[in-house]
Amino acid sequence: MKGSDQLVDMALLYVSLGFLCIGGSLPLIPDMHRFFVETRGLMTTAEFAGYIALAQVAPGPNILYVALFGYHVAGIAGALTVLVSVSVAPFVTMIFASYMFERLQTNPWREIVLRGLAPVTVGLMFAGCMLLTRGFADWRAWLLAGIAFTVFMTTKLHPLWMIGAGALAGVVFGL
């Protein structure tokens, strides 16, 4: 596929994903995985998961990991294409919402819809977690993830410390 075709391909995907990323972009991971790894074969699951992890260690909104997918495929142009595409729907929606603030505030449907969508959003995030575990090298990665999960659940440790500790453990034990 030619470079410009790939940009259009990614732009189409991300403009449509932009409309769907209610409750964050993480529930969309299965769709992005399908696109980049399964159907287009542009990267491996390990690379895919690595980019998500890399974006966690850098500052900024977590959505930025999508820019790394674009960068992997088509450099700076790819990163900008993906980021701008995924932002179209949120951008237009929020400008509208800002003008409509008062009216939205008194609409009881807002809470009803949010409550109804919450289980679906979380269910899709679980599917995203399960996809990422496919990149696990062996049982030690599972053990590490288990320990990390226990730490997140039981302490108030900043997540970055645990992600850093995970990197260190990976190096020490040669994951």
Partner: peptide
Amino acid sequence: SGMHGMAAAATAYLLY
């Protein structure tokens, strides 16, 4: 190796 370890911890964070 470090990225693999980081990815495992980040996956756990996503689950959390």
